[in-house]
């Protein structure tokens, strides 16, 4: 018994010694921590150098719809929606790059298949300030007007076997299908700004469009985005031969209108 108890006792004594021995070091560490916190709070105050820095870059993710096997709508002879929206997305990127200090991403830059989840994940990973998905509609459908959609708010669904109260209590996790719910107000604002900017007479074409309210629809690509998000359907003449020159001109005008609206939203948000 004696043999067994001796080492235990000595280990406890050693532990106590270690504990007391580390006390001054702990005081030093606490002091260092307090000093560094004080320095941090001082540096957090706005200094002239800090104020002179440019504002943080805002991020815009542009999503050209469809791609790969999914060609979308046949707009004109040999011209598919996936190609037209890619051209429009590239033009919009160029236009935005010219107008504002933004960080711009495209969900695809060539004709490849991108899943809805990949598109959404890209937007969320980049912590985007705006997500804009580009699609097409025909002028016969819309009377030549742009269509802007926001996602329909989705009711909370209970995954099988999981109680909502437990879900709420367990973590502050938002299921992906509810991500856009929290952004509904901002998405509505973004849609309104885009529609308004589209309506304003264009400096080049001199044309203006009639105002139309945003359409509320359950849209897969917007559902999981944790940022203001809209889907824009650009009006393009369908079934007619759209020569290259006219096509490029149309895309350029449309991208300029969109860019104007996006910059307005980011500036006044």
């Amino acid at each position: 018994m004696q043999r067994g108890s001796f080492p235990r006792k000595s280990r406890e004594a050693q532990k106590q010694k270690q504990h007391h021995g580390s006390y001054p070091w702990r005081c030093v560490a606490l002091g260092v921590l307090l000093l560094s916190a004080g320095a941090g709070s001082l540096s957090a105050e706005e200094t002239p150098e800090k104020a002179a820095l440019p504002p943080p870059l805002q991020v815009v993710v542009i999503d050209p719809g469809h791609g790969g096997k999914d060609g979308g709508m046949l707009v004109a002879k040999n011209r598919l929606e996936k190609d037209v929206v890619l051209a429009a997305a590239l033009a919009l990127k160029e236009e935005l790059g010219r107008q504002a200090n933004l960080q711009l991403y495209l969900t695809r830059t060539r004709d490849i298949a991108v899943t809805i989840l990949e598109r959404t994940t890209m937007a969320n990973r980049q912590e985007t300030d705006i997500f804009i998905s580009l699609h097409l509609t025909t002028q016969t459908q819309t009377g030549g007007q742009v269509r802007i959609y926001i996602n329909q708010t989705r009711e909370l669904e209970r995954p099988a076997g999981l109680q909502f109260s437990k879900m709420q209590a367990s973590a502050y996790i938002t299921p992906w299908y509810l991500a856009q719910n929290g952004q509904q107000g901002l998405s509505e604002q973004l849609a309104a700004v885009l529609l308004k900017s589209w309506r304003e007479p264009d400096a080049v074409s001199g044309e203006s469009e009639l105002y139309q309210a945003p359409l509320v629809t359950p849209l897969s690509v917007l559902t999981g985005v944790r940022a203001p998000a809209v889907l824009v359907e650009l009006p393009l003449p369908a079934g007619q031969a759209l020569d290259d020159r006219r096509f490029e001109e149309t895309i350029r005008i449309m991208s300029r209108r969109l860019a104007r609206g996006l910059v307005q939203f980011l500036t006044h948000r």
Binding site: T115, E157, L219
Partner: peptide
């Protein structure tokens, strides 16, 4: 599937 024809959310 995610969508009916590239747009409407069919996950719900």
């Amino acid at each position: 599937v995610d969508t009916l024809a590239g747009h409407v959310d069919l996950s719900r």
